[in-house]
């Protein structure tokens, strides 16, 4: 029953984050969605990732969202959607049907049922898998983080060369 409540909570908060017109409230609904997703992950036995999702997904990303909204400012846009709503619903239903078509037959396979029983015996090797089997991923993550930080620094600082060029143009015109 608790799983159902968490699932309903995730879907409701995700839907409200899309429907809400104020951006700050949208960020808060997104944070609640992240927190509930991490709770569901914990209940599935993925405790390590659940902790990271809670701290990064619900914490850091929310702080960055609020920071960006603070700089960019909230903006009330018209209610007219970019795409007609019926067309958007058709796309959503199509995506759902395609997912069901791919996922549901695979879930009936007998190896899934045996794998489900073996899950508990295989648990506890996350550290070995992460640092040895997937060490390339870890290096890639470190590179990505540096690339992201450098990109943000480059994007958020005012371009000194651009202002210099404008000033030189002004001087030439005078």
């Amino acid at each position: 029953m608790l799983n159902v409540l968490i699932g309903v909570g995730i879907l409701v908060s995700a839907f409200l984050s899309i429907r809400e017109s104020r951006l700050l409230v949208t960020a808060l609904w997104l944070a609640l969605t992240s927190a509930l997703v991490s709770w569901l992950m914990f209940r599935m036995g993925a405790a390590e990732v659940a902790v990271v999702e809670l701290s990064v997904g619900a914490g850091l990303v929310t702080v960055i969202f609020v920071f960006a909204i603070n700089i960019a400012g909230d903006e009330a846009l018209g209610s007219q959607p970019l795409l007609p709503r019926p067309l958007a619903w058709v796309a959503v239903v199509l995506a759902g049907v395609m997912l069901a078509w791919m996922v549901l037959p695979a879930m009936q396979a007998p190896e899934f049922l045996t794998g489900l029983e073996e899950t508990s015996s295989l648990h506890g090797y996350f550290k070995r898998v992460l640092w040895h089997d997937r060490s390339v991923d870890v290096i890639l993550q470190a590179v990505l983080m540096f690339a992201g930080v450098l990109t943000v620094l480059g994007l958020l600082t005012d371009d000194p060369f651009a202002t210099g060029k404008e000033e030189s143009h002004d001087l030439q015109s005078h």
């Binding site: 648990h123 898998v129 997937r134 992201g148």
Partner: peptide, 30 residues
């Protein structure tokens, strides 16, 4: 990962997704 009995491999992949997603979100917001 849970269905295949390889929850640790799934967790390491999910960790990669979290890091990548955070970087994508930060760059997109910038």
């Amino acid at each position: 990962g849970r269905l295949n009995g390889k929850i640790d491999e799934a967790q390491s992949l999910a960790l990669t997704v979290i890091v990548t997603d955070t970087v994508v979100a930060v760059v997109a917001l910038a």
